[in-house]
Design a binder for these strands. Structure first.
Length: 191
DNA sequence: ACCGGGATGTTCT
DNA sequence: GAACATCCCGGTG
């Protein structure tokens, strides 16, 4: 198994970590997928972040140690997952390209008909990996709390990642900030 | 292909 | 009571 990203990897500005997470591999048991789309959320400086107004019950994990997973429930039926940098800072994992364990992903995503439907959005990614609120706080470095890790299999981030505004933010919530990055041309990037 | 709306319930005002 | 870091389905062109 390739090595997990170190605790120190996560202890940086989310706008630096985010593009660096592209092409890293999310692993859970037999399931593996290459991260192809991410967004940075910048804590108390960022009106679009759940951490903007300080710690609450929901966002407590974002204020804990770096390298853990912050999972939140939204729109009454979906979960989304972030890698935490600490101090309310985080990177949303928006989409990934399936590598292995696709049978398990299809079983978890009954509506998906094609490979590019499995993990091509933040809630799809969680559904495909069976990540729910019980994995909030899981340790991505040691795997403690659900066996979910992010590892480096030797594929470098793209030298020229695509970059643009974040998805789904209302006006006044930092919607103009270009804090989304993706792997150019990858079919698993969300629409 | 594109577009509009419904589902569904937690969180915070 | 409104907003919500979304997804899916069914309409139309």
């Amino acid at each position: 198994m390739p090595p997990s990203l170190s605790r120190e990897f996560y202890q940086r500005d989310p706008r630096v970590v985010a593009p660096d997470l592209l092409n890293k591999v999310l692993v859970r048991g037999a399931r593996r997928a290459r991260i192809v789309e991410v967004e940075a959320y910048c804590g108390s400086d960022d009106a679009g972040s759940h951490a903007f107004r300080g710690p609450t019950t929901r966002n407590a994990t974002m204020f804990g140690p770096a390298g853990h997973l912050y999972v939140y429930f939204t729109y009454g039926m979906h979960w989304c997952a972030n890698a935490v940098m600490g101090d309310g800072l985080a990177v949303l994992l928006r989409a990934a390209a399936p590598i292995a364990g696709l049978d398990l992903m299809y079983a978890a995503r009954l509506k998906a008909r094609r490979e590019r439907d499995l993990l091509s959005g933040p809630a799809k990614l969680c559904q495909g990996f069976d990540i729910t609120t019980e994995h909030d706080g899981a340790d991505l470095v040691t795997g403690r709390g659900g066996g979910i890790r992010i590892v480096d299999d030797g594929v470098a981030p793209p030298p020229d990642p695509a970059n643009g505004v974040r998805i789904g933010l209302a006006p006044g919530k930092g919607e103009e900030q270009p804090w989304r990055w993706w792997v150019p041309g990858d079919p698993n990037v969300s629409r």
